[in-house]
């Protein structure tokens, strides 16, 4: 339950990226700010925000202490994925100005005990689970790789839609799509869409050594580049933007095959999303749980 929030210590913490989240004028953390921050945590298999997927069940704020409860579509969702989401909730919310510590609670899952105790105690996955034989990094990489492919499909579709040719697409670089300086955190590119100067939602691509300009919807390109940066596929503004599933440069003759493979990754992701959504609806109904309003 939401409790009256304390005025203390709210402005004491800032992140290296600057103050994050929206502390209100009175210096309190709001549930909206928490949700906004948690929007960055994704279901790693579906590459979609856990807020959008309605996994967040409750947010309670008690001074600098935050409590977040979440649910998953079934009690059998991979414990590895559940762990990633639980740690993601904790890490992201603790970056909010005004939050000292977050307690995460996963409910209705076969591994609530291990996950809740493990994540809140800051343990490693392989230490929290008796049966675990290895960490989760390989799984995370493999899911990230798939997410990158599905995003590549949507980005390349957008470029094909505005008339770019395969040979132009395979040679694009971040600089060509207007990103001359790569941020450390790929998400900075995605969130930049909030910039009021970008109100058309388009970006301009420079081709043929600056003699040709093409406008293309910004969202799919930015979402792709963010993931490409975060997976270390793209490390410089002059790197090729797109790559094969193995992370290699795409030869012009490979364009169709690579594009079809990324399409399969996208269909896989949305198909699995359909399965999860059906399970989620059967379990919790079609409506999201009410979030607690802040006390005042």
């Amino acid at each position: 339950m939401a409790r009256r929030t304390s005025d203390a210590d709210v402005d004491a913490r800032t992140d290296s990226e600057g103050p994050l989240g929206t502390a209100s004028a009175a210096g309190t953390v709001t549930p909206e700010a928490v949700l906004d921050r948690l929007d960055r945590v994704t279901d790693p298999e579906l590459d979609r925000s856990i807020v959008e997927l309605e996994y967040i069940d409750e947010i309670a704020i008690d001074g600098p202490e935050l409590f977040v409860r979440f649910v998953l579509p079934t009690a059998w969702c991979s414990p590895t994925f559940a762990w990633m989401m639980a740690t993601g909730i904790r890490e992201e919310s603790e970056k909010l100005a005004g939050v000292e510590e977050t307690e995460v609670e996963l409910i209705d899952h076969m591994h609530t005990a291990e996950i809740n105790a493990g994540v809140n105690d800051g343990k490693q996955f392989e230490d929290a689970f008796e049966d675990a034989t290895e960490g989760i990094e390989e799984t995370r990489k493999s899911l990230d790789r798939k997410a990158r492919l599905a995003r590549q499909y949507r980005a390349v579709e957008a470029l094909l839609d505005v008339g770019l040719k395969p040979e132009q697409i395979v040679s694009l670089t971040p600089a060509d799509v207007g990103v001359a300086d790569l941020p450390e955190d790929g998400r900075a590119i995605e969130t930049d869409t909030d910039n009021p100067d970008e109100d058309t939602g388009d970006l301009t691509i420079t081709l043929a050594e600056g003699t040709l300009y093409v406008r293309v919807p910004r969202e799919p390109i930015a979402a792709y580049l963010a993931k490409a940066i975060d997976t270390d596929l793209v490390t410089s503004a002059d790197d090729a933007l797109f790559a094969t599933p193995d992370g290699e440069a795409i030869g012009e003759e490979q364009f169709d095959l690579v594009h079809h493979r990324t399409r399969a990754a996208s269909v896989n992701q949305s198909g699995q999303g359909g399965v999860c959504a059906s399970l989620h609806e059967a379990r919790y109904g079609g409506e999201s749980e009410e979030l607690d309003e802040p006390a005042d």
């Binding site: 493979r261 399969a264 990754a265 269909v267 896989n268 198909g271 699995q272 399965v275």
Partner: peptide, 24 residues
């Protein structure tokens, strides 16, 4: 599922691989 993309890529290259639709 949920590894449709890996599966189709393998099956495209191996003529003795089939796909069963159970659950899909």
């Amino acid at each position: 599922m949920p590894r449709l993309d890996d599966f189709t890529w393998i099956a495209a290259q191996e003529p003795n691989v089939y796909g069963g639709l159970a659950v899909v």
